[in-house]
Amino acid sequence: MNSEELRNITANQIVDARGTACPGPLLAAKKAIGDIESGEIMEILSSDEGTKHDIPRWCEKMEHDFLGIVEEDSYTRLFLKKA
């Protein structure tokens, strides 16, 4: 999905991991994914540059559907749909 489409999404769960360094955002994502149902959408906020690569790889492994990235000024929003 492009950023325009992603901006219009209302996530079922927003995980704010801004300010934490590796592996903080990944651990936060792992923790929060348990709270949503299959097919629901989670949004992860991260200021850690590595998260942009880590979360898509993690989704691949966990079979979640990675929807894409929206870049904000000082952080990144990452969207995924739970498998």
Binding site: C22, P23, L26, L27, A29, K30, W58, K61, M62
Partner: peptide, 11 residues
């Protein structure tokens, strides 16, 4: 420790 905790997140 970073690799270990990351690995748990990686299931």
């Amino acid at each position: 420790m970073i690799i270990s905790t990351g690995a748990v997140a990686y299931d």
